[in-house]
C-alpha cells in the first residue's frame, strides 16, 4: 500500500493507523499548536487527547491514532487551526 507523507511516498500496510505509519517512518511530530506553534505528535494513542491531529486527503483535524490508512492517502502535517480544502 502506498501513501504519501508531506508529498513523499512512504510504505504502509493495511491495518496500520496513520500514527503507526508515521512513527514507523521515524516521524515523531506532525502538528504545531495554534497558539504557540509548538510541535506535537502522538500522546494518548487511543483517541481522547486530540493531540495527534493530521491532515488526510485535504481534511484537517483527523486523529492519526484512530485513522486507518487507505491506499493513496495524502497525509500532511497540520499547522495550527486549518480549514478543509
Amino acid at each position: 500500500m502506498r501513501v504519501t507523507w508531506d508529498g513523499r511516498e512512504v510504505e504502509a500496510r493495511p491495518g496500520q493507523t496513520v500514527a503507526g505509519v508515521l512513527i514507523a517512518n521515524g516521524v515523531r511530530s506532525w502538528r504545531t499548536t495554534r497558539a504557540e506553534g509548538r510541535p506535537r505528535g502522538l500522546f494518548c494513542g487511543i483517541g481522547v487527547c486530540f493531540d495527534c491531529l493530521v491532515r488526510v486527503n485535504g481534511v484537517p483535524d483527523v486523529r492519526a491514532c484512530q485513522r486507518l490508512v487507505a491506499d493513496g492517502d495524502d497525509i500532511r502535517p497540520q499547522r495550527g487551526a486549518e480549514l478543509p480544502s
Binding site: 505528535g41 502522538l42 500522546f43 494518548c44 494513542g45 487511543i46 487527547c49 491514532c65
Partner: peptide
C-alpha cells in the same frame, strides 16, 4: 513530542 501516555 516523545512524551506519551502508557496506554499509547
Amino acid at each position: 513530542p516523545g512524551v506519551f501516555t502508557a496506554g499509547a
